[in-house]
Design a protein around this nucleic acid. Structure first.
Lengths: 234, 234
DNA sequence: ATAGGCAGTATTGGATCCAATGACAAGACA
DNA sequence: TGTCTTGTCATTGGATCCAATACTGCCTAT
């Protein structure tokens, strides 16, 4: 974390948004958790005005759900919605990979390979999660796209909480397949086999989606208080 | 414009955002045009606070670009960025069509066919633009997806201004091809040939992207004052 | 005992106010 | 003449204040 520098004028909102976004991705708030403007304001030392603006940003990113006169909650996904996101990723990430691969030099590929190995060795789900994210987003770092990169990051952010839960449920076989696929993807990029890298990645995401769909209990973890909320916003 | 109902508490921001969004899509503001908070506030009768929140939303949607201590401008795209969006659409819209097609009944298909015919008959670029949008988004109306539908709408919104300019430059041959493709798409949906509909649509978008790329002058229309702006935000 | 209503409180939505920054124009100087 | 300074003004950013709404707990009545 960068040291908390003195607040520069005109950056409060961005700062708060980043703070909240990181907290949600890190899992500090579970899906459905209420986010009170006053709390965040006092936590960051700012007033509620920039907090409200930050919440609007996060809402547009899908990380938070706003209900008028009621407040903000960390967005939760149904299994159906999550599958939807994975289907989009299936189509979009291979494209991004294709645009990124030529921009990855040997050093980057070595780093990606190292990430894949680290991942194969860890038993800690939280570390697995972090490495997996670093790996995939790392394979996209060579692209100088704007819209596409941003889109993919947002899709990852929205599903992070559920990937976290699922990661804890994976058996050794599933883990092993993931590692194999990762290694194959790196090899394909290294060999300039872009088509093959694309279809490997599409298969990787598709398989993950199916695995996730076979664990609906991941999405059953909604606190009871949320039933009302979901009903209201529907 | 819908009648200005009495302002309900908790809807000012959403109202303003919708207003601005529609205005940008309609072309009331050109890309690069400055959007002053005070102006919008006074125009809508609200204070600047909800205006600022609305601008944050639009910024997250990519319709507006915010620069700290400087203000908001209607986002402008480079040819490269526009092509990027089209490439994403190429991958994502066929998926959405596939999920929508089963939900379209005979009446909807008739309406879509009628839109295609109307489009073939009009000579007015602005009407062509509106009908084209209505047609394509209409083919997606059968999907009960959330994320995907929203994504596609946003991609359309961001490119609308450039599609408007390009529409005025199309020659008869280009128009004719568009109409043919539209009719084929409707026919494929009607026949339940989803794969064929998908690839027709992908080809339709790809072809449009290439046509657009052959008219770089569409993107040269940036007012001079914007050079500074673009430089600063880079 | 439980459902419904009522009051008090917490929280959000919006308006107003002031500070900080940037934009612009007129003038000084090389 | 062109450029740099400098001062004024317009605009944005943020804080505070008040109104509107929702939530909570208690009380009452059946």
């Amino acid at each position: 974390m960068s040291a908390d520098r003195q607040p520069e004028h005109g950056e409060a909102t961005a700062h708060i948004a980043e703070l909240l976004r990181d907290a949600i991705i890190r899992g500090d708030f579970a899906p459905g958790a209420r986010v009170r403007q006053g709390q965040v304001a006092e936590l960051t030392g700012a007033s509620r005005a920039p907090v409200r603006e930050a919440l609007r940003m996060l809402a547009a990113e899908g990380l938070v759900t706003l209900v008028a006169n009621s407040g903000a909650r960390v967005s939760s996904l149904s299994l159906t919605e999550c599958e939807e996101i994975y289907r989009v990723r299936e189509r979009v990430e291979p494209l991004l990979l294709q645009m990124s691969a030529p921009g990855l030099d040997a050093a980057s590929l070595d780093r990606l390979g190292a990430l894949a190995e680290q991942m194969a060795e860890t038993a800690d789900p939280e570390e697995f999660l972090a490495l997996d994210r670093a790996f995939h987003l790392g394979t996209y770092a060579g692209a100088d796209t704007v819209v596409l990169t941003d889109l993919v990051h947002r899709l990852w952010n929205r599903t992070q909480a559920y990937r976290r839960v699922y990661t804890g449920l994976m058996d050794d076989g599933a883990r092993r397949t993931v590692h194999d696929e990762h290694r194959l993807i790196v090899a394909a990029i290294r060999d300039g086999e872009l088509d093959s890298a694309e279809s490997l990645l599409a298969g990787h995401i598709r398989r993950t989606r199916r695995q996730l769909a076979s664990h609906p209990e991941v999405f059953a973890s909604l606190p009871a208080s949320l039933a009302t909320f979901a009903r209201r916003s529907a």
